[in-house]
Nucleic acid binder design. Structure first.
Length: 188
DNA sequence: ACCGCGATGCACT
DNA sequence: GTGCATCGCGGTG
């Protein structure tokens, strides 16, 4: 089953955990989402915190679209826009378990190890060929393909990574015991 | 295992 | 001019 845009028309705090286990493909290349972070509008760590800007405009548009931005001048990062129009909520896709088109991903990444293909937000965008061109595009139309999970996976929460504000919030959702996450959570 | 740092774009103060 | 929602490499335990 493909996800439709109504999947994203609710709070990111519901959507983000529901994305763990969903398969993300770009023109047939990609894998299972194993790590997601939630960013809402009241969140000082969110790009939407200070209101819309040219860069973040797709975050303020309708849910079910991509928000792609450049990070540290080098990498691209992919978000799924959530909630109703006017609010800025987004789920940052942080890691995939590669399942489709491994050779294409290896060629784009320039690395061989399966574990390193999509284990980070910048890595997975490089592996899937995601750039600014994809900012604002609908997630239920090509080149995007989102396949619903068939079973509810075991999910673990942890603090978010790579931010300097609101670091106490456990708004990072991971597939339990997955070796494909960007960084393993602290063991319980 | 951890830590430091360079590469590099650009939105925002 | 500053500071990142990063990555990978090279140094040190």
């Amino acid at each position: 089953m493909r996800l439709t845009r109504d999947f994203f028309a609710r709070s990111v705090h519901e959507v983000a955990p529901d994305l763990v286990g969903v398969t993300l493909l770009m023109d047939g290349v990609g894998g299972r989402i194993v790590e997601v972070e939630a960013y809402d509008q009241e969140d000082p760590a969110s790009h939407g915190y200070r209101g819309p800007t040219p860069r973040t405009s797709s975050m303020f548009g309708p849910p079910g679209a991509a928000y792609v931005y450049r990070s540290y001048g080098i990498h691209w990062c992919l978000n799924f826009v959530c909630d109703v129009e006017g609010r800025a909520e987004a789920a940052l896709i942080r890691a995939l378990e590669p399942t489709h088109g491994l050779d294409a991903m290896r060629a784009r990444r320039g690395v061989e190890a399966e574990r390193s293909l999509c284990s980070g937000p910048g890595k997975l965008c490089q592996a899937l060929g995601i750039t600014r061109e994809h900012d604002g595009l609908a997630l239920d139309e090509p080149p995007f393909g989102l396949l619903a999970r068939e079973e509810t996976p075991e999910i673990v929460t942890a603090p978010r990574i790579g931010i300097t504000k609101a670091t106490e919030l456990s708004w990072r959702y991971l597939l339990k015991d997955s070796p494909f996450v960007s960084r393993a959570p602290r063991r319980a």
